[in-house]
Every structure is written in C-alpha cells, then in structure tokens.
Simulated scan of single mutants.
Amino acid sequence: MACQIRLDADNTLRLPYVSEGCFALLGVVPLELELHPELLLDMLHPEDRDTFYKSMQESIAQPTPWNWEGRIVLPQDGEIKWVNLRATRRETDSHGTVWEGFMVNITQNKLAQQEIKTSRQRLRELSSHVENIKEEERGRIAREIHDEIGVLLTALKMDMAWLAQRLPQGGSALHEKVQAMSDLLDTAGSSANNLVHNLRPAFLDCFGIVAAIEIEAKEFTKRTGIPCKITKSDDDIELPDEQSIALFRVFQEILNNIMKHAAAKQAKIRILKTGEYVYLAVSDDGKGFDKTSRNKPHSFGLRGIQERIKHLGGGVEITSEPSKGTQISVSVPLNDAGLQQTFYFDQAIK
C-alpha cells in the first residue's frame, strides 16, 4: 500500500493519499481511510502503538526516514497482521511534516521467523535433554565400575598378596609371575579409576565446581606440562547440578582444545561469582585462530559449548587472533531461573 502521511502542527495525523492496495491490506477502501485516518490508528495493536508514535517522532527529530514494524488488528474479524511502514520524510514546516512511502504485509515473514526461533529452541531443549541423559548414563556406568569391577579388582589384589606369601622360597619364576600379575592388577585398577573419573568426576559432587576445576587443571598440567594459573573469587560456589556439570564439561572441552590445537605454553583460568552469575574464563598464549576457522563446518566443540550454555540462560564470548592466543569466557546463572543475556566478561569482573 503506497501512502502519503501528514502530521499537522496540532499532532493530527492525516492521510492525503492512499493507494488501492489499502483494501487488500486493511480491509478499508482508500477514500474511507483518507477521510477517516483515525481508522488506521484504531487498528494499531495495543502493544505496538507506542512504538508507532515513537518511531514517528524520531523521524521528525533526527531527521531520518520513518521505519516502523508492528501489528495491526483488522476490525472486521480481529485478524492480526504484521506490517512494515517505510516512508521518506519530504518536508517539515510550520504546518507539519509529510512522509511518502509504503506499508507492506510481512506476516508470513514474521511467522517464518517465529517458526525458525521455535525450532531452534526445541532443538536446544532436545540437545540439553540428550546431554542430561548422557550424564545420567555416565553416572550409572561410573557407579557400576566403581562398585563392581573396582571391588573385584581389589579382591583379586588381596588374593594375589595371599598367594605370594605362600609360594615356596626357591621359586623365583613363580614370584616374578605373581608380581607381574599384581602389577597388571594395579594398572587395571588405575585404568578403572581414570575411566570412572572421565565418566563422572566424584570430586565435582563431593567438593563443588571450584575444587573440581582446580583438580582438573592440575591433572591437565600433569598430562601436558602446560602450567595453569587459577584466579577465584570464592573457595566454594554453589550451583545446581545441571549448571555445575555443564560448566565442568565446558571446562574440560576448553582444556582439550588447548591440548590439541593451541600449542600454548601456559593457561590462565578465572572462576568468579558476580551478582547472579558465575563467570569462567580460560585463556592461553597459543596459536589462536581467525573467524573463518571458528565457523568451519566441523567446529562442533565450540558450537556445543555455545548451545549448552545458552540453554542454561548463560552466555559465551570467544576472543582469538592468530598468534595472539585465545580466551573463552562463559557465564551461567546461579539458579535455574537465569534469563538469557549477552555479556562481556572483562566488564563483568571489573
């Protein structure tokens, strides 16, 4: 619908010209709308009426084109349509302001956007549900390994010790064989403990997220030789189970990326409680990467971090440049009712 809009000095809105497209869009013939411009104002959705007038006043004050997007409610049947008004300001004088432009129906675009948004939210919820199921299954397997295989290995170790005490003194080959079997049992026990730790770190449940991160960082340093400097605001930060395990898994993924890709000489870790959020930042002095590398099709690690944290109502910020290292900053709410927000980690901790 093409139109000319005039706002008089007394703030009376007029429509000197409206095209034939008026009827298809608003269900009103052009002449009727030209004679009664208040019909358009009455159609404005109550929740969008303020933005209509605000955008009009901004166009007058700037001066800039008038661009408004909102809903109208057709009086005939109550149908709601999304419309976009784009109008160029032609003149402003003592008698008022005149715009010329178009009002178009964008309902289908809005519905498509809403469908995409809903689909993304459902996928995020499904992904979170899958992660929760995986964590539950990991916990179950870890308990079974600890309670059953761990007990069996301990019993075998005791039996081997009993057998070693009863071997004849002159049988050196037998003693060596028993010792070798005992060493294998020690290796199996160590492997079982590592497996239990990877499936579900017990110290996360026992000591909390801060201690878990400290212990994981020490283990990382042992495996890789990369020193980690940790800064913390509290020795103990209480988090719901879902937030706690998600933050810990994200931390593990970041350390894994440093080990595989960064070629770093050191890493710095900050975990701070600020307001209603816990902030975790991990930085390294490694190779870094550019935006192109970050958006590669198979960069599932970083995407998984972003999706997991976003579902919890937190935020992720990734800063990296080639040869200048990388910093990944993550925030999660202290409770389950956290709202999604964009944050800047450095500002949050100042």
Rank of each mutant, 00 (worst) to 15 (best):
M1W: 01
R6L: 08
N11K: 13
T12Q: 15
T12C: 07
L15C: 12
L15G: 04
Y17S: 04
V18K: 01
V18Y: 00
G21L: 04
G21I: 08
A24F: 11
E32H: 06
L33W: 04
L41S: 09
L41C: 09
L44H: 03
E47D: 12
F52T: 02
S55D: 07
M56S: 02
A61V: 07
N67W: 04
R71I: 10
R71Y: 03
E79S: 12
E79G: 08
N84V: 12
D93V: 02
W99N: 01
F102K: 07
I106N: 07
T107M: 05
L111P: 01
I116P: 03
L126G: 09
S128N: 14
E135Q: 11
E144P: 00
L156T: 13
M160Q: 14
W162F: 15
R166V: 03
Q169D: 14
L174E: 11
K177I: 07
S182P: 06
L185N: 11
L185D: 01
D186I: 13
G189R: 05
S190N: 14
A192H: 06
N198D: 13
C206L: 12
G208H: 09
K218A: 15
P227N: 07
C228I: 11
A246V: 14
R249L: 08
A262F: 03
A262E: 05
A267K: 02
G275F: 08
E276D: 15
V282D: 03
S283N: 05
D284I: 03
D285K: 02
K287F: 06
D290L: 09
T292M: 04
G304I: 03
E307K: 08
G313Y: 04
G314S: 03
G315D: 11
G325Y: 02
S329L: 01
L334K: 05
D336N: 13
F343H: 13
F345Y: 14
D346V: 07
D346M: 07
